[in-house]
């Protein structure tokens, strides 16, 4: 049964005040432990890198990998980060203690040579943009979700490309690349995409 919220003004005021007090106290404690604030919880102007890291983590929930992409049912979700150490650091913090579909999440800093070894997601930073062209075809065969962060990355074979529009982090999607990689992207993800490139 749904609980009806009391709207009695006096009581409401009391509850409100005490809730506010609790919240403040909690914030202080959290701040003292310097735990990274969860995404979108109103931390003072989070940096673009941390937002991007959060985005990468969030993408996992909206993408479906083929079964053979994982060695076993409890194999971890491995995110390879190429050419974006700052983001890798942020991402490690984001995924700490988080799981996706009962899988642990692992962040690996990879180099171009071993960029696709045992990873499910490959983040290609702007510094490694030139490497993407060589990796894209293999990544597609291995059903690796390629997330990139530079202009025209979709043309290079990236599936999801991050971009900044009006000071906000947005992303664009290539359904063609996704299909090629045998990845299924949730329509809900497409709904909030800045741009969707259809085949």
């Amino acid at each position: 049964m749904l609980t009806r919220t009391s709207t009695q003004p006096a009581l409401r005021r009391v509850v409100e005040v005490s809730l506010l007090a609790c919240l403040t106290a909690c914030m202080l404690v959290i701040g003292a432990w310097s735990t990274p604030a969860p995404l979108g919880d109103g931390g003072a102007s989070p940096s673009a890198t941390s937002v991007k890291a959060a985005f990468v983590y969030r993408f996992l929930a909206f993408v479906e990998w083929p079964e053979q992409a994982f060695a076993s049912a409890d194999a971890p979700m491995v995110i390879g980060v190429l050419g974006a150490d700052a983001l890798a650091h942020e991402l490690e913090e984001v995924v700490a203690n988080r799981r996706i579909d009962e899988r642990a999440i692992e962040v690996r800093r990879v180099d171009v040579a071993h960029a696709l070894d045992g990873v499910n997601v490959l983040y290609v930073g702007e510094q490694a943009s030139s490497a993407l062209t060589g990796l894209a075809a293999r990544a597609a065969r291995a059903s690796v979700l390629v997330v990139s962060d530079f202009a025209d990355a979709l043309d290079e074979g990236s599936v999801i490309n991050l971009l900044v529009v009006d000071n906000r982090v947005r992303f664009e999607v290539s359904l063609e690349a996704a299909t090629r990689s045998a990845l299924r992207l949730s329509s809900r993800l497409l709904g909030v995409a800045y741009r969707v490139r259809a085949p």
Partner: peptide, 20 residues
């Protein structure tokens, strides 16, 4: 008078309107 910060599921009736 409603809490906006994660009040969970619930509803309140305000005259001829219901807020869920």
């Amino acid at each position: 008078g409603m809490s906006r910060s994660d009040p969970g599921d619930g509803y309140a009736i305000e005259g001829n309107e219901i807020v869920v």
